[in-house]
């Protein structure tokens, strides 16, 4: 597989090999091979149109690859639909704010905990002990996640009525409620001011501390450089560099295609 990944002893949670996606005559992602180790925070960067979101959509199952394979936790997931990836433990956020607009923050999180709950309609009709126990547990867990995302004071507010920054945090709360093993964050810092960006960095670190592996697409270099263990750079659908942030961000090729002529203060 990947030359860069062979030395690392940690468990490989995601292995992408020779992944390609063609839209008509356009090859959005070409022959990309990369791996993510369990517990890592990996950044996926590249200029607009580099194929980052296309790659994300394939990983999340909402877009089948044209060729190549995706293995998640040792299981082949190539072409598996979105809800199957979700059930296996891959959660994602979307580039454009994506939540359940006319539900409260608490219900957003509770709805998102689908994968982690069992008691369904039947149990709810009977109001049996299993149902009551699970609902109490779910409410507690959902509140914990809201506290984690600093949204507990907004638990009864409709998602629609929240500020932009709150909505972006609620998105992460939703993704976390599914108790994912791999979290795909698509431009979580988009539209955030530096202070909110810093808050996001803290949040990603704490998410990692909970044992969740994170793969994120991001344009804010400060966020990327301060939170990622490793970076993968795409350009025109092709992987052009991979490695530690400091090294990648000073790679002349990366600077040329992505960051302009100036070196970055990372």
């Amino acid at each position: 597989m990947n030359a860069a990944a062979q030395e690392i002893p940690a468990k490989e949670i995601l292995a992408v090999s020779n992944l390609t996606r063609i839209f008509g005559g356009l090859t959005a992602v070409r022959d990309v091979t990369m791996t993510v180790q369990a517990g890592e925070v990996v950044g996926l960067i590249g200029p607009n149109g580099a194929g980052k979101t296309t790659l994300f959509n394939m990983l999340g199952g909402s877009l089948p690859p044209s060729s190549g394979s995706i293995r998640f936790d040792g299981t082949d997931c190539t072409g598996a639909p979105s809800h199957v990836m979700g059930q296996r433990g891959v959660s994602r956020t979307f580039q454009i704010t994506s939540l359940f607009p006319s539900l409260t923050a608490l219900d957003n999180v509770r709805s998102a905990a689908y994968r982690t709950t069992r008691a369904g309609w039947g149990a709810s009709i009977l109001r049996n002990a299993a149902y009551r126990r699970e609902e109490a547990e779910l409410r507690r867990k959902a509140m914990d996640i809201l506290v984690f995302c600093d949204l507990d004071h907004r638990a009864d507010t409709l998602a629609d009525a929240m500020s932009y920054g709150e909505q972006r945090r609620l998105e992460i709360a939703i993704a976390l409620a599914a108790e994912p093993r791999l979290l795909l964050l698509d431009e979580p810092a988009a539209g955030m001011n530096p202070e909110e960006g810093q808050r996001l960095v803290e949040m990603i670190r704490r998410i990692r501390a909970r044992g969740v592996t994170v793969l994120l697409v991001e344009h804010h270099m400060r966020v990327v450089a301060s939170v990622c263990d490793r970076l993968v750079v795409l350009d025109h659908g092709v992987k052009i560099a991979e490695g530690a942030p400091a090294q990648v961000l000073n790679d002349p090729e990366v600077i040329r295609v992505y960051l302009g002529r100036e070196p970055v203060d990372a």
């Binding site: 199952g61 909402s62 979700g86 959660s91 979307f94 359940f100 994968r115």
Partner: peptide, 13 residues
């Protein structure tokens, strides 16, 4: 509310 998001959370729409 949001079918693509629901699917990404493991719900078979």
């Amino acid at each position: 509310e949001n079918a693509p998001l629901a699917a990404s959370l493991g719900i078979n729409v």
